[in-house]
């Protein structure tokens, strides 16, 4: 079992520590372990990538951390504190999530204004108007978008709104579930740049889930490769850039990302 300890920057505190996480779907005979003994630790201010194909359980890890999936065991600790299955209100101000499909993650009948101001009202923030306007400027949309509805926006613009929403409560950790896989490459570049800028500016911790090795290599310092619910390899980004992964499956993924080889 490769350990993530040796590649961790020692001086940084650990923002997220997951030990022996198992996630289950279904009950009784149908019970199925979607995530098996996953352990990762992410340094504060770091950017951690989870790579894998569909059904590898990578998104499920995020959903367990965020609290959307409750049927799990193991330990999840945020900033050194072990969290329970029932989440406190304050947890929302620590961890937020950006979803894969911007066409499905914004409420179709709510204006952008409502989408962005609702979390502020829930957590009794002041200056709601100013904060919403500022959030729109921060994600590069501008205040003229404030009273529009999602159907008036393009995919990239919607994803910017979704990022703004995740940032409204000023979280420290952002969970990114395939944030660009539903977007065109040119739009993907814009969104990835935006995410990099925001991380720099706000010193956020990212956990990025994706199937695209190039995206994870661009965004993350440390990468875990998942297959069939298990982590098969943990490596730093340099290992990946040098094409020196240990595990057969990782090599296969790397090869496929280079394009098609006739005699494989």
């Amino acid at each position: 079992m490769p350990s993530s300890e040796n590649t961790m920057p020692k001086d940084m505190p650990i923002a997220l520590n997951i030990q022996n996480l198992n996630v289950y779907f279904g009950e009784g005979h149908e019970k199925f372990r979607a995530v098996k003994d996953v352990s990762i630790s992410v340094a504060a201010g770091g950017s951690y990538g989870l790579v894998g194909e569909s059904g590898s359980g990578k998104s499920t890890v995020l959903r367990a951390v965020s609290g959307l999936v409750t049927n799990w065991d193991g330990t999840i600790a945020v900033n050194g504190e072990t969290i329970s299955k029932k989440r406190e209100m304050s947890y929302c101000r620590t961890i937020q999530m950006v979803f894969q499909d911007p066409y499905a993650s914004l409420h179709p009948r709510h204006s952008i204004d409502r989408t962005l101001s609702e979390p502020l009202r829930l957590h009794k923030f002041d200056n709601i108007d100013d904060r919403v306007n500022q959030a729109l400027v921060d994600v590069g949309l501008g205040t003229s978008f404030r009273f529009r509805y999602p159907h008036q926006l393009s995919g990239g613009q919607r994803q910017r709104v979704a990022i703004a929403r995740a940032l409204m409560l000023e979280p420290e950790i952002l969970l990114l579930d395939e944030p660009t896989s539903a977007l065109d490459v040119s739009v993907q570049a814009e969104i990835l740049n935006l995410l990099s800028d925001i991380r720099k500016k706000r010193q956020l911790t990212y956990i990025l889930v994706t199937h695209d090795l190039a995206v994870v290599a661009h965004m993350c310092d440390e990468i875990a490769v998942m297959s069939h619910g298990e982590i098969v390899e943990v490596m730093d980004v340099q290992t990946m850039r040098d094409s020196k992964p240990q595990h057969e499956y990782t090599r296969e993924l790397l090869e496929a990302s280079e394009g098609y080889q006739a005699e494989a």
Partner: peptide
């Protein structure tokens, strides 16, 4: 759907989700 997941993550209670987010749909 993801937009319900998003508002859950922001700490909205059941009643608020049902009345404010599910009813309009």
């Amino acid at each position: 759907s993801d937009y319900i997941a998003a508002i859950q993550l922001q700490g909205a209670g059941r009643l608020r989700i049902i009345l404010g987010h599910i009813w309009p749909m």
